[in-house]
Design a protein around this nucleic acid. Structure first.
Length: 579
DNA sequence: GCCGTTTTCGGCCCGACTGTTTTCAGTCG
């Protein structure tokens, strides 16, 4: 994607440096420094090519050495140190450490002793039984590696879209809640932080007796293979090639364990460093005074952060992208929460071909969520199968007036989700468009166009007086298709200039804008709309994933369109139209 | 390599599990 291509490439290159250094066996702290730099760069809300070397060195985790390498990359397009490392480390070793359970030490051993230079050579050596007998490697290790290599060849591997992982995780949690003696169960990890794709499922349980909970996981219907089973922790392979890790703790340690298990790893390392500087030590059982061993906090996450002298950090923000410093200074932004939302501005009824519930049912469910308004934005005429003709729009308006009577406490807004044509043209005509109360405009076709063309068509829609929100701005479907190429900064500038909002589509299949794009939008002062894009009653509950995604981008209620009350919202529409 | 309420050197988060070891190294998160 056009956005932050420089950052992504740099992040990848520093990640590769870290991997190669690890394979060379250098000091682990140096490796960690490069890993941290890669993470910082990958999450930076500003394109690094826009900054000078001093500003780059001011980023947390980036010092003079890394900054000069970044400058070198920006000047020459390459980092000489990386080129040198690539020539020094046999290429196949990078492939070897991708095998779960096979780390740098073993990779080095396999290469030096057996000449194994890649996955294929490892397979052959395993088949020939050549690993057994190597010092430190027995028959069990060989069998585990054989399994791991075989799994790598299977179809269902790698990260899953959040929507799929949520389904597995919730099923797992439900199973564990039925175990006697279990006080609390929650999923943590990247799922709780609401990353858009999920590598594994982390489940935490509080119970007086751990073994029955472990047994329940091993026996769960979703469990394919047990990878590790100890007193405090069990790891299994579940359906869809997803690993699930379960930790069981006493209820008194719940908060500390939740902090630990939610991560991110980088966030944990940073707050543990902070603890050490205060003469404390933090682990999954609590925050302790170093000298006396006295436990200062552990029951809730709020207790732990408070005892560290920090604001409590919402899980989606725990990525070590500045939140630790901000929370320590008491300056963490008060990010948007579900309770701040006054309505939902993108939803469908059965008037659209793809809507699965009637206007009555959708409106009743939206009202039951306590919304002050709900915009029904059925598809417009240019979406051939699902769209509404003008005749159907007029008929729906009659229906809308009738349904409005049934939900007196909530304002139903007569809306549409328009189609952005290849040249930026919209459905209907100007007068008809202005007869709607609220319009979202989205790209639904011709998604593989060059960035310049794609950007221009979206900006054309942004400039249209009837368009209040651009729906799912990048068009990505997680696990299925990447977003279209756009120049996000140009789109953000146009949105700010015209007073148009960009959507944070809350569907866990989309999460579009992404968290990092939200952060960029917030930096540039763009208005966002968090919308469920519900096609069914159940979809309305997806809003929480949109809120989490907005939190990942540090969005505050002040920048969210649907945190406004009805009057504020309608004033926003009027201002846009007056331009 | 980074960093500072130990501030330009000397530290750097902490624990669980496995396998192959008789006390611990390697890997993972």
């Amino acid at each position: 994607m056009a956005m932050s291509w420089v950052n992504e490439d740099l992040s990848r290159q520093f990640g590769e440096i870290a991997t190669l250094l690890k394979l060379k066996g250098v000091d682990a702290f140096r490796v960690r420094a490069y890993e941290r730099a890669a993470a910082t760069i990958g999450a930076a809300p500003v394109d690094l090519s826009m900054l000078d070397e001093r500003e780059i060195a001011a980023l947390s985790g980036i010092g003079a050495g890394t900054a000069s390498k970044i400058a070198e990359y920006l000047g020459t397009g390459a980092i000489a140190m990386l080129e040198r490392l690539r020539s020094e480390v046999p290429p196949g070793m990078v492939e070897l450490v991708r095998v779960p359970g096979l780390g740098p030490k073993t990779a080095r051993l396999l290469h030096d002793e057996l000449g194994i230079d890649g996955l294929e050579a490892l397979r052959e050596a395993l088949d020939a039984g050549r690993l057994e007998g190597l010092k430190g490697l027995g028959t069990k290790t060989a069998a585990n590696l054989r399994d791991a290599v075989a799994r790598m060849g299977a179809k269902d591997t790698g990260r899953l879209p959040a929507a799929d992982a949520i389904a597995v995780a919730e099923q797992l949690c439900a199973t564990l809640r039925t175990v006697p003696g279990v006080a609390e169960v929650a999923y943590a990890g990247s799922l709780r932080r609401m990353r858009s794709t999920i590598g594994d499922i982390d489940v935490l349980a509080a119970a007086t007796d751990a073994p029955p909970v472990m047994d329940a996981l091993r026996g769960a219907g979703t469990t394919v293979k047990v990878l590790a089973a100890g007193e405090k922790k069990t790891s299994v392979l579940t359906v869809r090639g997803l690993q699930a890790d379960l930790r069981v703790v006493e209820a008194e340690a719940w908060g500390a364990a939740l902090v630990y298990f939610t991560g991110s790893k980088a966030h944990n390392v940073r707050i543990r460093e902070r603890a050490v500087r205060q003469g404390l030590t933090l682990n999954e059982y609590g925050l302790y005074r170093r000298e006396t061993g006295e436990r200062l906090a552990s029951r809730t996450e709020a207790d732990v952060y408070a005892a560290l002298g920090m604001d409590e950090v919402p899980p989606p923000m725990r990525e070590d992208t500045g939140e630790v410093e901000a929370a320590a200074a008491g300056q963490l932004p008060r990010v948007v929460t579900l309770g701040d939302l006054r309505g939902d501005l993108h939803g469908h009824s059965s008037w659209s071909g793809d809507g699965k519930a009637t206007l009555d049912d959708m409106a009743a469910a939206a009202a039951a969520r306590g919304y002050a308004y709900w915009a029904v934005t059925d598809h417009a005429e240019n979406l051939s199968i699902n769209g509404l003709s003008r005749e159907q729009v007029r008929a729906r308006r009659g229906d809308l007036r009738r349904v409005q009577e049934t939900v007196p406490q909530m304002r139903l807004l007569d809306g549409a989700e328009l189609n952005i044509g290849i040249d930026g043209a919209l459905d209907y005509d100007l007068d008809f468009l202005l007869s709607f109360e609220f319009c979202v405009a989205s790209v639904h076709s011709l998604m593989q166009r060059p960035a310049a063309e794609q950007t221009a068509r979206i900006i054309a829609a942004i400039e249209h007086p009837a368009v209040c929100v651009i729906g799912h701005p990048t068009g990505r479907i997680l696990g299925k298709r990447p977003g279209y190429d756009i120049d996000l900064d140009a789109i953000l500038d146009a949105a700010v200039e015209t007073g148009t909002a960009l959507e944070v589509n809350a569907s866990p299949r989309r999460l579009d804008l992404s968290g990092s794009m939200v952060r960029r939008a917030v930096e540039r002062g763009a208005t966002l709309a968090i919308s469920s894009d519900a096609h069914s009653v159940g979809d309305l509950a997806s809003m929480r994933y949109g809120v989490a995604t907005a939190q990942r981008g540090w969005a505050t209620p002040a920048g969210i369109l649907n945190c406004l009350d009805v009057d504020g919202l309608l004033a926003f529409v009027d201002r846009k139209r007056a331009r």
